[in-house]
Design a protein around this nucleic acid. Structure first.
Lengths: 242, 242
DNA sequence: ACCTGAACACCGTTCAAGT
DNA sequence: ACCTGAACACCGTTCAAGT
């Protein structure tokens, strides 16, 4: 909410009469829903809450949206509008640009924990999801990854980033899960779980960003070395740097 | 339900009197809940449905379980009991054994789609989750992966397998999502999305198992080549085969 | 201590009735 | 066509009252 707006909610009031209710529309519904999921998490976005945010009853929404699942898909794609696929990344090679794109994706989802949870249970086929996949496919092609391999790799990369964001999101509600893991690990007997005991420090270390960057490097290194078809060769890298 | 049991539900009846209600217990509750999630999916397992499966009211469960979230965590760990961490895998090297273990994990989750969805939103800290992590850490150590790297790698491997199972699980309810993706891709203009258009065949190809096996290979290849600390060296492989 | 009926504050979705 | 009040069939959780 911009600070210069004195109203708690964005109700437009006319000089002549009472509050002016803006007409319902698919767009207004998605906007309201995205606002709710951003501020109140996944369970803060219900059809009933979206409806009352728009000053109407839940039944009214069904004129514009088939059901909750469709609304969720629309909200996800609207949020993905914020993912930068062609920011100015001068001098970065294709790997750097993949990292930047996935970083932007992660940032968009991490800023809205509920959205990341939603993304894990929604197949993204909206225009913005397509734009992201298209760009990733292009970057992998630039890196010489064969098309068949790249097709599966895009899935793998996005899936992992989504999961990272969702995991991070869980940190915000309830008791800190990292603490829970810490306590669970602390009670284990060194005899029964020697490896976990030995690695107890390392298991809990690292920020989300550190882990994310490492994971993307793992995925790219693995993708480059794991052709989908036996004998499939990586073509010469082209356009690696400017 | 075993076929020799003529009763629809497992109600024990005594010769002398009416049906004998087995006493409530944490264990009985978890068993009933696992049965429900197995047969009816994630949303088929509610506290109220578990209660009525046990012939009682929902309030009664709160004597044994703090809330729905705790019950879900218990159900997950109970199911993970079925993951084989030390099956006889003669002659397989550490990579093969990692593959077998993750395959078992995937199988357990894939057989219960609701459980995979649940696993994505539950941090598994139960004894069976610990057993799986312990074994994976041991196998990676056998492969010469440094401890710090292995600690994060375990997370990455399990997370991906969980996500694969959850995605596969979505296939079963609603319209086939692969078909939805196919239709979405089919409507894209080759001009705007040249890479997706070129890869449209490859994007949809491959069974879950093929994709899973490829992904695990990607992850292991990447993990072996991406030390967490700069300059961290992989120790000589020991015990690669018998 | 364990169990429970009833209530509370929610859900998504449908449908007949309005305009 | 768009909108809506009311209802339907559900949720998780709490609490006073029972034994």
């Amino acid at each position: 909410v911009a600070q210069r707006d004195p109203f708690e909610t964005r109700v437009v009031t006319s000089r002549r009469g009472g509050p002016v209710k803006q007409p319902l529309s698919r767009d207004a519904i998605v906007t309201a829903a995205l606002g709710l999921i951003t501020s109140a998490g996944l369970e803060g976005m219900s059809l009933r809450k979206v409806a009352s945010a728009l000053d109407t009853g839940p039944a009214s929404l069904y004129a514009y949206v088939d059901n909750l699942q469709e609304l969720q898909a629309l909200v996800l794609d609207r949020a993905l509008l914020g993912v930068k696929t062609k920011g100015p990344w001068p001098g970065r090679d294709w790997r750097g640009r993949v990292g930047a794109l996935l970083g932007s994706y992660l940032k968009v989802l991490s800023a809205r924990p509920g959205l990341a949870q939603l993304a894990l249970s929604t197949i993204a086929v909206g225009p913005n999801a397509m734009r992201i996949s298209e760009t990733l496919l292009g970057l992998l092609a630039e890196g010489g990854v064969a098309r068949a391999t790249a097709a599966w790799a895009v899935d793998l990369l996005l899936l992992y980033c989504t999961a990272i964001a969702a995991e991070k999101g869980q940190l915000h509600d309830g008791p800190d899960p990292l603490e829970r893991v810490g306590r669970a690990v602390a009670t284990l007997s060194p005899e029964e779980y020697p490896h976990i005991f030995a690695a107890r420090q390392e298991l809990l270390s690292g920020t989300g960003n550190e882990r994310g960057a490492w994971a993307v490097a793992v995925l790219l290194n693995g993708i480059l070395r794991t052709p989908r078809r036996r004998g499939e060769k990586r073509s010469r890298t082209r356009g690696t740097s400017k």
